[in-house]
C-alpha cells in the first residue's frame, strides 16, 4: 500500500539518475564502435604518443605536488586563523576556479610580458612553448582547487585536538605536525589525487601557454584535439581510452584514500 503511494516520488528520484547514467554510458560505450585493440597498441607504440603520456603524467605530478605543497599551509591558515581581509582574500583565491582556463593561460602570457615576467624569463623561468609552461598552466588551474579542498579538510578537523595537544606540551608547530597533519593525511592524499587528475585533463591554459608541439609540449588532451583536427579517429580514441582508464584509477584511488568517509 505504502509502496504504491510512494511510487511517483520514487520514480521522480530514480528516472533522472537512470537517465544521467544512461547518457554517460552512451558517451563511453560509443568508443567501442571506433575502438580496435590493434590500433590502440599501435598508437601506444608511437614516440609522440608516449611523449604526450610521459609529459601529461609528469607535469601533472609536478604541478599537483606544487599546488598541494603550497595549499597545505595556506589552507590551514585560512581554516584556523582570523585576520583582517580574510573573506576578501578567500574570495580572491577562488577566482582561478571560476575563470575559464583559456583566460588563465592568456593571463600567464600577458604576465610574462610585464617587467616582472621578463625578469623571471631572464632568470631562466621561460614559460611560452616550454614544458615549464605546461606545468605553470596546470599549476595555475589546480592550485586554487587544492586550496579549496584542503581548507575543507582542515575545517573538518576539530581544533580542540590541537588545543589539547598544546596543553600537553606541544608548540603550535608541533601540534600541527603531531596531530593536525596526521588527521588531515587522507584529505591531503585525496586533494593531491584530485588535483593531479584535474592537471592531467587540463587543456585550455596549457594550449595557450605551451602550445601543442608534437613530442614537445603536446599533452594527452591537446593530442586529442590535434588528432580530431585532422580526423585521426584511431589516435583520438586511443588517447580518450587512456584518459578514461586514468580517470577510473583516480576515482578508485580517491575512494581508497578517503576510506569509508562519505
Amino acid at each position: 500500500m505504502s509502496f504504491k503511494r510512494d511510487l511517483p516520488f520514487r520514480l521522480a528520484l530514480i528516472v533522472p539518475l537512470a537517465g544521467l547514467t544512461g547518457y554517460f554510458l552512451l558517451l563511453i560505450g560509443s568508443q567501442y564502435v571506433f575502438f580496435s585493440a590493434a590500433a590502440f597498441l599501435h598508437q601506444l607504440a608511437l614516440p609522440e604518443i608516449q611523449a604526450a603520456i610521459v609529459l601529461s603524467l609528469g607535469s601533472a605530478t609536478v604541478s599537483a605536488l606544487l599546488a598541494v605543497g603550497i595549499a597545505v599551509p595556506g589552507a590551514y591558515l585560512l581554516a584556523r586563523r582570523e585576520f583582517p581581509g580574510k573573506r576578501l582574500l578567500d574570495t580572491f583565491l577562488d577566482l582561478p576556479v571560476v575563470l575559464t582556463p583559456i583566460a588563465l593561460g592568456t593571463l600567464i602570457l600577458m604576465a610574462w610580458n610585464t617587467p616582472a615576467g621578463r625578469l623571471l624569463d631572464d632568470l631562466g623561468l621561460t614559460l611560452p612553448f616550454t614544458v615549464a609552461g605546461v606545468i605553470a598552466a596546470q599549476f595555475t588551474v589546480v592550485a586554487a582547487i587544492a586550496l579549496r579542498l584542503l581548507k575543507t579538510t582542515f575545517e573538518q578537523i576539530d581544533p580542540r585536538y590541537e588545543q589539547v595537544a598544546r596543553t600537553l606540551g606541544c608548540t603550535a608547530a608541533s601540534s600541527f605536525r603531531r596531530v593536525t597533519l596526521p588527521l588531515a593525511g587522507r584529505g591531503i592524499l585525496a586533494a593531491f589525487i584530485l588535483t593531479w587528475a584535474r592537471a592531467v585533463g587540463e587543456f585550455g591554459a596549457t594550449v595557450m601557454v605551451a602550445g601543442t608541439a608534437r613530442g614537445a609540449t603536446a599533452t594527452l588532451p591537446s593530442s586529442i584535439y590535434l588528432a580530431m583536427s585532422v580526423a585521426d579517429l584511431p589516435r583520438a580514441v586511443t588517447l580518450i581510452v587512456l584518459l578514461l582508464l586514468i580517470s577510473l584509477a583516480v576515482l578508485l584511488a580517491v575512494r581508497f584514500a578517503l576510506g569509508s568517509r562519505p
Binding site: 576539530d158 580542540r160 585536538y161 588545543q163 589539547v164 595537544a165 598544546r166 596543553t167 600537553l168 606540551g169 606541544c170 608548540t171 603550535a172 596531530v179 596526521p182 588527521l183 593525511g185
Partner: peptide
C-alpha cells in the same frame, strides 16, 4: 605564557582523544 608552558592539563567536554 603560551599554553605549553603553563603545565595545566585539560579535559574538554568532548575529551578530544586523538583518533589516529
Amino acid at each position: 605564557l603560551p599554553p605549553e608552558l603553563r603545565r595545566i592539563a585539560y579535559l574538554p567536554q568532548d575529551l578530544a582523544l586523538f583518533p589516529h
